[in-house]
Design a protein around this nucleic acid. Structure first.
Lengths: 325, 325
DNA sequence: TCAAAAGTGTTATCCTTACACCCATGT
DNA sequence: ACATGGGTGTAAGGATAACACTTTTGA
């Protein structure tokens, strides 16, 4: 049944997220200053050296960024993209396991820089995902025209069970009355990839040579499937926020409610209603006042809070069930 | 940096779920009648033969069960359990990618039987997960005494960030006022494994030989890490029900509201309030009446409904947001 | 006529959303 | 005093949870 197989290598790749003020940041490593595309910290899994994936991942991250990874969770395993395996390949087939990690910004970035790594605002890679200042112009100016064309050109030949291109477009980039769903970040990236509108699609050879044309720049690109892993991380984090208190992994031990709101807004890419956010946090009993306050924010001094670790046992799903707005 | 690595093999494993009347069923394959433990359909991923994981998975499932897999989603990639890799190993290190698949019962089970496969009620493997007839006695009679002992014996030597054993016990198997959370099926299995209370833990050599003792039977066991994958599938399905209309993958195209409710109850392992369930479904506009009705249920004939596929585009997360009860 | 299952009606309560206004500090 | 951000009160509307009763069939 099974013939001789080409070798398989497992790549462990980490999307390490942090928030600096109002910007969500992603840790990029390994690329030199003048050598785009950027990449995420990653390395092969070696079962002899690393007893578990997570140990392997942490050791690669430490080696490439001199930073401990903190909270870590597995996202997804990708095996179906990039160069396909052929008989006689010398290179092993690479499968990547993507991870999400959360840290707070280190005080001192010099060790990071020495290791050739650094943080970059994640919306550089996904400019259409940041709705904090309203609907991003790139959507109507560039993305929707191109995707509409793509959808119109493929209304036949779809397999029965799959949604049509039109439907998938409407699902990921809703127009008309339907609301934007910030959790669909991965669906949107996948759609752009399938439509051949991101550089990675051409690089992977998905678009036949004759179809290739000058692409508009839809966000900065990344090496291999790293941008796909980042999109997965964003989608997962945006969704997980709402039912697990993961946001606190991104905060300092003590924080003001406004900085907490800013962090949530940075991650989810949209505005929240101040009073409602506060009530949500306080009635959810996720947080307790330390009694201290800080005048460092300008204006009236803000009360400091800390995360109540007890909630983990009290309630089934203690997250920030963000509503509309 | 990297030394010669042992070979790696990727195993694709499917938890194929169906509901028969009131029982959730899991497809087991490959074990002969008199040869427990049962196993899930699975096989190695061959990048030359299968272009994607999903294609590979579907072909293994077809070969071992003569059944098309239907809706498929990746669950998790496990690499850290079972026999650890050692230098000089002849066998490759096996990493398993677990999948969840949903189908409805085939009309005719003979092809399945001929392929050596069959459905089994999933609560045989997890008797503590079925709360439809109240709190399962095995919890108070067997599980909690053993877990309490385990928790009491390990209150020191925990790493700082990890929850203590007591806390994890309270989290997974809440006592006192805290409500049972049916979505924590995986956490519960993992806890039992770590406590050395399921057969797999001893088989994997987690418990030192001197500690081994006669175990109580905590559910039927499965081969390799298959029961862990099933626990992952149950947890994922129970949670996904609530925000995506996956339940309809388990239904016939036309169904009564009671059979829909029975299916949801079977999966989530608890009772639901009839009127509230109906309002949820109808106001959620997940379903539309066909106009027909069936007298096949005994008693008053029931109106038939079908799933409204349009909801997928109308609302961000159209699931059955089940409340209490 | 009775068992069995389908299918309402109604209310109290809580949660969500959206208003707009007041408070404490530094300059 | 005024700019800057911090921090409420409160009311309308909708969703939820819980109550028990009526309807339609087959035996």
């Amino acid at each position: 049944m099974a013939t001789a197989r080409t070798g398989i290598e497992i790549g462990l790749t980490a999307a390490i997220v942090s928030v600096d003020g109002e910007e969500p940041q992603i840790l990029v490593a390994g690329g030199n200053e003048n050598e785009p595309p950027a990449g995420l910290p990653s390395g092969p899994f070696d079962p002899l050296e690393h007893h578990t994936f997570e140990i392997g991942l942490r050791s690669w991250v430490m080696a490439q960024t001199a930073l401990p990874a903190g909270y870590v969770e597995q996202l997804y395993t990708f095996g179906d993209r990039g160069r396909a395996a052929k008989v006689g390949d010398k290179q092993p087939h690479v499968v990547s396991i993507g991870y999400l990690a959360l840290t707070h910004m280190p005080e001192n970035l010099s060790a990071l820089r020495a290791a050739g790594a650094g943080f970059e605002p994640w919306y550089r890679f996904f400019p259409w995902e940041d709705w904090r200042d309203g609907r991003p112009p790139i959507i109507d100016e560039t993305i929707l025209p191109l995707l509409s064309e793509w959808a119109a050109s493929g209304t036949r030949k779809e397999p029965a069970r799959a949604l049509s291109r039109q439907q998938r477009l409407q699902f990921s980039f809703p127009t008309g009355g339907s609301p934007w769903d910030e959790e669909k970040a991965l669906d949107r990236y996948e759609l752009l990839y399938e439509a051949g509108l991101v550089e990675e699609a051409q690089r992977d050879g998905r678009e036949a040579a004759r179809t290739r044309k000058k692409l508009p720049v839809l966000g900065e690109t990344m090496r291999f499937d790293h941008r796909r892993i980042l999109a997965t991380a964003i989608a997962r984090l945006r969704s997980k926020l709402k039912y697990r208190p993961v946001i606190f992994e991104l905060m300092n031990p003590e924080f003001t409610l406004t900085s907490l709101q800013n962090t949530v807004e940075a991650i989810s890419g949209r505005h929240l209603h101040k009073q409602n956010f506060r009530r949500l946090v306080e009635t959810g009993a996720l947080v307790e006042p330390t009694g201290e306050s800080t005048a460092a924010t300008g204006g009236r001094p803000a009360a400091l809070f800390r995360f109540r670790r007890d909630v983990l046992q009290e309630r089934p799903s203690p997250g920030l069930r963000l509503g509309a707005r």
